[in-house]
């Protein structure tokens, strides 16, 4: 991957990659919010390749966010939610297996939310939070991790003089990048992003997008987005969902230029949704 770094910086547009290994493997997954009465996801199968950005698109209520939240088992927190069939494998491991700890899973599959949600603590404490809950106490380690993460999130220059200030004093875009920094501080394998730019203005959005392309080098990213333009700008692969089903999945260029299914074409060209 390292040989591609130069290319990436000069070429923000997604490019075809050499064969890369699969990180996430979704196999015929079915999901229900109400004890299995109605299925929100109806048998989704797809694979997410390593160190690429994979975008999930589709109209509201199509199940894309649900799938995303299945990937780090955030849906476990809903009492009535239930996986009805199939399996999800991350790094080859079935994440619903008995010996998988959801907490350990979430440490390695980070998540960035739609609405930026830094804790009401200082910037430093926010970024250090993940490490601290893992039991890291040494100040030098924390300092180093905070600096590295803030730099990776392109926030270091703006925040280095005010690390002890409350995170809630930052602007919206900065707060969202802080959330990203917080997520990458624990070096997860995968980062899930749930419409990370929907609450941001265009300038902040551009910065976050730029950041995602940067992060692709080190992380595998799955992003849910409402904006087709965003998907086409940043993602390597795109999956189109409709009513709980995966309609089409392929390289972004192909989905946007030459979709094989009519529904996809309609959606992308704005005829519905």
């Amino acid at each position: 991957m390292h040989d591609m770094s130069n290319e990436l910086t000069t070429l923000p547009k997604a490019t075809k990659k050499k064969k890369s290994s699969t990180v996430i493997e979704v196999d015929d997954i079915g999901f229900s919010y109400d004890h299995g009465k109605t299925e929100t996801l109806k048998g989704i199968s797809m694979t997410v390749p390593k160190n690429q950005v994979t975008a999930l698109i589709g109209p509201s209520g199509c199940g894309k966010s649900t799938l995303l939240r299945c990937l780090n088992r955030m849906n476990d927190l809903i009492d009535t939610a239930k996986i009805t069939r199939g399996a999800i494998r991350i790094l080859g491991q079935d994440i619903h297996a008995a010996d998988v700890d959801a907490i350990e899973l979430r440490k390695q599959v980070g998540m960035v939310f739609q609405k930026y949600n830094p804790f009401p603590k200082s910037i430093y404490d926010n970024v250090a939070y993940g490490l601290r809950i893992q039991g890291v106490k040494k100040k030098s380690v924390l300092d180093e991790a905070v600096e590295r993460s803030l730099k990776s999130a392109a926030l270091w220059d703006e925040a280095k003089d005010r690390l002890k200030d409350s995170a809630l004093g930052l602007s919206g875009g900065q707060q969202q990048r802080l959330c990203i920094a917080r997520t990458i501080a624990v070096r997860p394998k995968v980062i899930l992003m749930d419409e990370p730019c929907s609450a941001l203005d265009p300038i902040a959005t551009a910065k976050v997008e730029e950041l995602m392309l940067e992060l692709r080098r080190d992380f595998t990213i799955v992003i849910v987005t409402h904006s087709m333009q965003q998907a086409s700008r940043i993602s390597d692969n795109t999956a189109f969902f409709y009513l709980g089903e995966l309609i089409e999945y392929g390289p972004t260029t192909q989905i946007f230029t030459n979709p094989s299914v009519k529904q996809t074409e309609d959606y992308i060209s704005g005829r519905f949704g």
């Binding site: 780090n72 939310f113 804790f119 939070y129 809950i133």
Partner: peptide
């Protein structure tokens, strides 16, 4: 306390107890 705080903390791999003590209680 906004649910977003709890979610963010849990998504980081914090246990429920850690979330409760370190995020919800201070907030």
């Amino acid at each position: 306390v906004p649910k977003a705080f709890t979610e963010a903390s849990l998504a980081m791999g914090a246990t429920k107890l850690q979330t409760a003590i370190k995020v919800v209680l201070p907030a």
